[in-house]
Design a protein around this nucleic acid. Structure first.
Lengths: 239, 239
DNA sequence: GACATTTCAAGAGCAGTGCTCTTGTTTGTT
DNA sequence: AACAAACAAGAGCACTGCTCTTGAAATGTC
């Protein structure tokens, strides 16, 4: 029964916490993560800076909260994009939709993207709470690849010149996949390597686009990204 | 004749400029680019902060100088690695050496790497002076791919599901290559796309390793990188 | 050689930052 | 009503990038 009475203050706390996060998020899209000023977000929500420390024990703490929110938002966008393809056997469309969702979300949230996938603040180690949300994207990619191969897609062959021990280098990833409930069945080492590579290439492409490394090389970023995504799916043997 | 007299002061200027850059570079390796404090480097070289402004008109100016130095250092390391392969027809070794050089340099200079390929400071547009040094790495990769295909390597085929206009998306890159003196001959659009992709994947892999996104997925980073580099060369049709 | 000009280093100062500590007030519990 | 916990505000510390002013060198000119 004290829930309600308690909630009176707790609800205020949650609301203010949310207000702070919203203000921080708003500042994040215009400025970068490094420029996020705790005093500025405090002013935005009409507080004095020291009051914010009752809700977040440090600036890094605030960034961590934003980090988790960001990973979750991106993960949900990608999951939604995959789920939106009604014909679940249309691997090509599912793959393309997931890849495009990554890029679209990133372009729409450049500040968040820089926080998630840009250079981390030195001396700042992302706490364990972030790894769960952070894996949502790659889980979507892996499940698409897994569905494709369970449906009969041929596994890509390792190049003849490849160093021998392909599987052992990504053993951790394969363990993770097999321990994950939503991903059924074991994972071919070659597919594991290829999916990791594809994941890396997608985010490398988005990073290069957002950070300006493709200026002068790529003229049509939308078309280029589709070309990349298609080749990645082809190299994975799934489209 | 006044060169010597003038040089007395100018040489001191150059030396101090170099000292500042060295101190900044030293601080860069331990802390990140965002944390680079102009006042701290001033203290390191025994000056007061305001004196530094005689040598660099702003903090961004200092960062730009470090940016150019970094691109040049990385470019030179990669060029050297390629040149060190005596048998110029051994494309496999050249490709692997160049790829490994990128990773090795990046791991040895994480601060510089974050400056070059991490999230840029918002509102900071890299000036034109940086694009020359910045292209040195990709030029090495393109020249290796070009040598391979001139020596008879088969061009990779675009995937059957690929969107039609492959070449037009990377027309700018192809123009750049054809205008570049050290790169002889025109460039197959498919090779252009594939080389851009490989370049992206290499830096994506290094970024993911340095920024901690592969923790829990990859156990042996050296071996994993070699697996990636080999597959990239294979997808390019050059090894 | 004496004078004038430019270059340089230093200091003070401004507005901003993250963060801590103290003070007074509000809220919730007994 | 009394007490404890939670809270907002302010002052303050050490730091940042950057500007402006002051005084001292080094350089160029007569």
């Amino acid at each position: 029964m004290e829930q309600k009475a308690k909630t009176a203050r707790q609800r205020a706390r949650e609301e203010i916490t949310e207000e702070i996060l919203a203000a921080a998020r708003a500042r994040l899209t215009s400025h970068g993560p490094g420029e996020l000023s705790l005093r500025a977000v405090a002013r935005d929500v009409g507080m004095v800076s020291s009051a914010v420390y009752r809700y977040f024990s440090s600036r890094d703490d605030l960034l961590t909260a934003l980090l988790i929110e960001g990973y979750d938002a991106l993960g949900e966008a990608v999951e939604l994009a995959d789920r939106s393809v009604e014909d679940r056997t249309d691997i090509h469309q599912r793959w393309l939709a997931a890849c495009r969702a990554i890029r679209t979300w990133s372009i729409e949230h450049p500040g968040d993207y820089a926080l998630l996938y840009g250079s981390p603040v030195p001396g700042y180690a992302a706490p364990q709470d972030t790894v769960g949300p952070a894996t949502r994207v790659v889980i979507v990619l892996i499940s698409i690849a897994g569905d494709a191969h369970r449906a009969g897609a041929a596994s890509p062959l390792p190049p003849s010149a490849a160093p021998a021990e392909a599987g052992s280098t990504v053993a951790a990833a394969m363990e993770f996949v097999e321990a994950h409930d939503d991903l059924k069945g074991p994972l071919d080492p070659e597919i594991a390597v290829r999916t990791l590579m594809a994941w890396t290439t997608i985010f490398g492409t988005v990073s290069f686009e957002l950070f300006g490394h493709l200026v002068g090389s790529v003229s049509d970023y939308d078309a280029y990204f589709d070309q990349v995504a298609t080749r990645l799916g082809s190299d994975l043997g799934i489209i």
